[in-house]
Every structure is written in C-alpha cells, then in structure tokens.
Design a protein around this nucleic acid. Structure first.
Lengths: 337, 337
DNA sequence: CTGAAAGCGCTTACAG
DNA sequence: CTGAAAGCGCTTACAG
C-alpha cells in the first residue's frame, strides 16, 4: 500500500508539501508541485480515507437511512435511493445505505461512530422513531417526508395538500362531480405517513368548496389484493365518474381492472394519479398524474444537507415542493348518462 | 465528542484497558471491566470508526457496485441491493452504495482509498469494464453475474443454462412443441449480459433434443415498446402454444397483452417465466417461473466475500445456483386445434 | 491482571 | 516557498 510518505520520498519533499499540493491549500512552486504530481501518478497514490477522516473530522460520506416496508411499493423507493446517491456523488460525497430493521439504533450507531458527515432520512413519517435520535447526534440531517414537528430540521417534501387540491380542481374543470380517492393502506397512515391524509385533506377541501362528492378509501399496496379492492370500490360507487389514485400499487393494477370491466380511460372513467414519471414509464401508465418528484427532492435535500455540513448553514429549513401535473389525457368530460 | 480517553479517565484505567474490555481480546478482572462498561454507558461512548479503521486496517464496510441501466428493469435491481445490504449487516458490515456513471473509476477510487474491506459487484456481464480493475486492488471482491473468465474471482450466479433446460422440459412435459422465447433486449446481450444467451442456449439445446420448435426473440425492457413487441411475436407465430419469458418487463406486460387479445393462460396459451417471487407478488404475475434468487445469491456472495476478508479464504470460487421452479399452474396441455 | 508507548496515515498550525 | 512536529482516536505488541 502506497502512503503519503512514499510519495514524499519519491518526490524528495516533505509529507506536508505532498498534502498541500493535493489539497491546493497552499501555494507550491511549479517545479515542486510537478514532481509531486508525477510521484502521485507513478506510484498510483490515493489518500487513505480513514486517516484523512481522522485528521480532518470529515468523512465525505452521507448516510442514507432507507426503510423497506412490505406494505409500501418498493420500486418507488428505488427512485429516491438513486436520486440521493447521484446527488451526493455529484457534490463529492459517497453514500452509506442503511436499512437496518432497528432504524433508530442504526442511526445512532452510524452517527456516533462518525462514519458519516450527515444523514438523509427517507420516507419520514409523522411520528418517526428515528426523529428523537436526531437531536442527540452531532451531524446535520435532512428529511424527505414531513414529520409532525418539522422545526429545527431540514425537511423536504412534496406539497401533498396542494397536490390534492390541484388534482380535484383538474377533475372539476372537466365537470366531474363524484370521485373515488384511493389512498395508501391504513397501515401507512397509522405508521405516520402524513402525506396520505395531507393529499386527502387537500382533495376533500377542494371537493367541499366545489360541491363535489369525494369517496375516500384505502387500498392494499400489493397484488392481487389491490386489484380486488379496486373492483369493490367501482362496484360500490357506480355513479363516480373519476378515480384519483394516491397509491402506486393501485395505479399499476388499475389498467388490468379497467380492462376486466371493459372500461376505458378517459372514455368511460377519468383517472388521475400521483406517482413519478419514471414509474409511469416503467409500468406503462397512461394516466395524468402529479409527479412525486423523487429526483428533485433528493437533489435538493442533499444539496441543503451539504450546505449545512460545509458552510454550517442552520439545520432548519422546510420546503414543500409545489406539485406539477403531467397531463396524459386520461381526464375528460364524463359521458352523459 | 466522547473519546476512549474520556472513558479511561472516568473509569480510572488506561485507554488500553478500555479497548480490551470492548474487544474482549484480553481477560480483564470483573471489577475493572464493570467500571469500564459503566463509564461507556454513562458517557455514551461509541468508538470512532475512522480511528479504528486506521489502527486495524479494517473498515467493516463493503462496497456495493450497482449499475442502473435504463434498459434493465430497475425494480429487479432493488431486490439485489436489499439482499446484499441485509446480508452484510447481519455479518457486521455496513454497505457503501456506489453507482457512479464511471463504474471502473469509482471502483478504483473506493478501493484505493481503503473506504471498504471488500466489494460486491452487481449485474456483472461477460466483458465488464470493472473487471480489469479487480486485479489491481487489494480487497477481495464477489461478483453476482458470470463474467467470461471467472477464474480467480468469487462468482455467484443463477445457473441460467439449467434454467433454460428446466423450463423447456417443463413445457414438453405438457406436450408443447412450438414455443416463443422472449429474451432481454439485444443491448443487454451486447453489453455482456451472458445470462440471456445462457438461458437461451439451455432452452435451445433441450428443444433440439426433444424435437421442439423454439423461436428466440429479443424485446425491449420498457413500456410500452415491450407490449407492442409481444403482440408482434404472437402474430408472427400463430402456432406457438407457449411463451417463455426471460425479460421482466415483458413478464409485467404480458397480462395486458393477453387480455387485449382475449387470451387466457393456461387455457389459450401456456406461460413460463424467469423472475423472483417478490417480483411476481408485486406485479401480480400468475405465471409459473424460475426464481431469480436475488436474496439467496446476495446472501451467499456476501458470506463468501466476508470469509475471504476475515479468514483469508482464497478469492476463487464459482457457484451457479440450481434453478428452482415455482409452479403457478400457468402451463397446461395445449387445446387441440 | 494492567499500563506506557508506538504506530496507523493523514492534515495543519507553527517556524523559518 | 517549504519542513519538522503535533495531533486526530484508536489498537496492540512489549513490559512488568
């Protein structure tokens, strides 16, 4: 293993000089600098990360705390993972992926051992058991998802309430008056998935204002249950002219269900969803939807987290991204009956 | 930040003693040991990972080199990521998720800086540009996927050739004589995705022996292209009585396509696939399939890698897991025509 | 059964 | 413009 001492010897300078040439934190004369750089390449030197971390108290690593829950839709999670790792790498950080069963303890362990300079929490819920740990660790953190009390934290999330309003307004613009809203499973809400009721609240609020009927239901997040559930709901509300989906699994299943009933969107029923463009592409979903903005949320959360790490920006920021509707033409005026 | 010196002072012992109490590498008298453990808890001490890595040359971190390719099906990748991180954690290792565009350089960087003790390469292809780097780094590595020359590497993969044989034999047992095989896109093969032709070779071999007709085709890995392609293939081979899928996107799309054509499996056409049980569940796929065994492959690769790290086991092992068929009843005797 | 000391490979004030 | 030296927080032979 080649160390900075080897490089110093080869270049005929001190270790300090090698370090300064590499970091650029001090002016080094061109001839010396060149000798050092040559020695670095000829020996194939790369600084030892552990030693550097010890000397600088900086690891250049972020922790990504993911949770894989059986009742949430895994592919959606992957988009966030990619968004965070890519954004981190772009800013010079590597990513430690942590998904221990016991998330709170894992968070404590990773932070206390100083393996990372900062932490990104994915899938944060209202009452998240990882949150209390955050106050006891030295590193800054950024949350994706809205906790009950976001004060004192860096928080990024989609503005789900606005999303609910936007979607119902869109339906109303096409004269829909009775709508089925299919949310994530109850478990997700109980566990603190506030986005479910935030979207629902926005939708209900607007529905009330516009004098529309909104049937709010939950559905499983796995097949085939979710498909059966969709059939049930359609049976239960024969006069509904539109479906609003806040459940990825339901969105993936709906094309099957409609086909089984011989229905087409938007001719027979209008459909509007909330999921990412990537997701839409992978599953061939032809529905108008509010993008869940994984890439954007990941990028912003990481950038803000790194600002807190490097520039000591205050660890306090709440940003709810305004929802963006991608119109795929699956909402149209209901057929007169 | 609390260090080993603080603990030593609090307990009235030397730093060495604290270290030995924690590691258990030396007998320490009960009273001393207890004082140390009390100090550790009361101060909330956790060893600094960087310092420990520097002293021991062990980071207790594995690198997971993933590649997210637009023409492969992302959800399938997530299963491998989960399998590897879970297995690593169980054995006391954290996981650095690396997915840089320039994978070879990232591999070199992560290894040379000694951020990790070992490396897991995901999605290894025949001629993988990460492979040449492996010879130049000090850490052992484990590959998931079969390279052209597996000698000198720790390699785990599904035995795709056997899988091809198994699937065709299964079809033959139900009297099918003309079969469509839908493989991953050509790009995947060109890039070195040997598993595509390995499965195809096994299938063709068995088909020849049993005097069956096998139409081998490639299909896109994204919607809606793959759906259109399936329609094409069914039009092209009206006498085929079974479909064999080695393409996750095609598997996810097939139920739509069959429905659009008014066909049912296995009444009108038999279907057999290659994908994981998780995948089948998430997408509600009702087809008999060979499990892609992500969890098992991840677990074995990590266990073997850690054995190489900790016990210095030779970095040379090739293991092709025998395929396992999950019978979901989507293969039946073809209707007589 | 325990401690003093060297060493892991870096960075960075302090001197010159 | 450059170097000698201290220090980051651990572990582990070496002594006793």
């Amino acid at each position: 293993m080649v160390t900075i001492t080897d490089v110093a010897r080869e270049a005929g300078v001190s270790r300090a000089t090698v370090s300064y040439v590499l970091s650029g934190k001090r002016m080094i004369s061109e001839p010396v600098s060149r000798r050092v750089r040559e020695a670095v390449t000829s020996l194939g030197y790369t600084p030892n990360a552990g030693a550097r971390a010890l000397a600088t108290s900086q690891t250049k690593v972020l922790a990504l705390m993911a949770r894989f829950l059986s009742d949430e839709f895994a592919p959606a999670m992957l988009e966030f993972i990619r968004a965070v790792t890519d954004a981190a790498r772009e800013l010079g950080y590597d990513t430690l992926l942590v998904s221990d069963e016991n998330a709170a303890e894992a968070l404590r362990r990773v932070a206390a051992s100083r393996m990372v300079d900062g932490i990104v929490l994915l899938n944060v819920g209202e009452t998240d058991d990882r949150l209390p740990i955050l106050g006891r660790i030295d590193q800054p953190s950024a949350l994706i998802g809205l906790p009950a009390n976001p004060e004192g934290s860096i928080v990024f999330d989609l503005d789900f309430r606005s999303a609910g309003r936007l979607m119902v307004n869109h339906l109303r613009a096409y004269d829909h008056r009775e709508v089925i809203l299919v949310s994530q499973p109850r478990d997700v809400v109980d566990r603190g998935g506030a986005y479910v009721w935030r979207l629902a609240a926005g939708a209900e609020e607007t529905a009330d204002q516009l004098d529309m009927i909104l049937h709010h239901h939950h559905a499983a997040a796995s097949q085939p249950d979710v498909g059966r559930r969709l059939h049930e709901l359609l049976d239960q509300h024969p006069d509904a002219t539109a479906i609003l989906l806040n459940n990825e699994a339901a969105a993936a299943a709906l094309p099957f269900v409609l086909r089984e009933r011989g229905l087409r969107a938007p001719d027979d029923v209008s459909v509007i969803g909330r999921y990412s463009d990537d997701f839409a592409r992978a599953f061939s979903l032809p529905y108008t939807a509010v993008d869940s903005a994984a890439a954007e949320l990941g990028r912003r959360a990481v950038a803000r987290l790194i600002a807190a790490i490097e520039d000591g920006l205050p660890g306090d920021a709440l940003q709810l991204l305004p929802p963006v509707l991608t119109d795929r033409g699956s909402v149209a005026r209901p057929a007169s009956r």
